[in-house]
């Protein structure tokens, strides 16, 4: 018995099962795989270190071409590669190479000047002695500063580990 396609479904949505259609499906699948693994990487957030900007369980997208012809800038949210790109860290750049970074009573200081961080909400009492960011590295921190400093992963990271800009 042959099934019939209901008239309500447009014919172009159900192409004929021939060699050309199969090739189209394969090419489309390949293009989608390349685009979503090499250009725009979809990320599911697992953790609360970037709250309130990115909540636990929410989704984000990493643009892997963002830093092809541009350098990372302060306050960019970036994806940081670990051993590969299946599991990445999400952090915000707060200081660039050569800059001195510190926290005093929860306020971020770069090169001795306090910087306003509108993306940070909630109480923060972090204190961190000044340190200079090494060449070829960036200083990254999560937005959720309400957690104790000891429990928060942050610090200098190699520029090479930056996968792309996240939004």
């Amino acid at each position: 018995m042959k099934g019939r396609i209901p008239r309500s479904i447009p014919a172009w949505l159900v192409p004929a099962m021939n060699r050309r259609s199969l090739l189209r499906v394969l090419l489309l699948g390949l293009a989608a795989w390349l685009f979503f693994s090499r250009v725009l990487l979809p990320l599911r957030i697992d953790g609360r270190s970037m709250e309130p900007t990115f909540g636990d369980g929410s989704w984000a997208v990493c643009n892997r071409l963002a830093y092809l012809f541009a350098q990372p800038r302060r306050f960019d949210v970036v994806a940081i590669r670990m051993a590969g790109d299946r599991v990445v860290l999400l952090k915000r750049i707060v200081a660039l190479a050569g800059e001195t970074v510190m926290f005093r009573k929860g306020v971020l200081y770069v090169d001795g000047r306090p910087l306003a961080e509108p993306h940070v909400q909630g109480p923060c009492n972090w204190n961190l002695a000044p340190r200079t960011v090494a060449p070829g590295r960036l200083y990254v921190v999560g937005d959720n500063r309400a957690v104790p400093m000891q429990m928060h992963d942050f610090g200098q990271v190699d520029r090479q580990r930056i996968l792309g800009k996240v939004w």
């Binding site: 670990m82 051993a83 590969g84 790109d85 299946r86 599991v87």
Partner: peptide, 20 residues
């Protein structure tokens, strides 16, 4: 353990991975 990269050298292997 994800993102395993295995480099083999005869009877030795060096691996990097991400553990969650």
């Amino acid at each position: 353990c994800v993102d395993l990269t295995v480099s083999l050298d005869r009877d030795q292997a060096h691996v990097t991975a991400t553990c969650r």
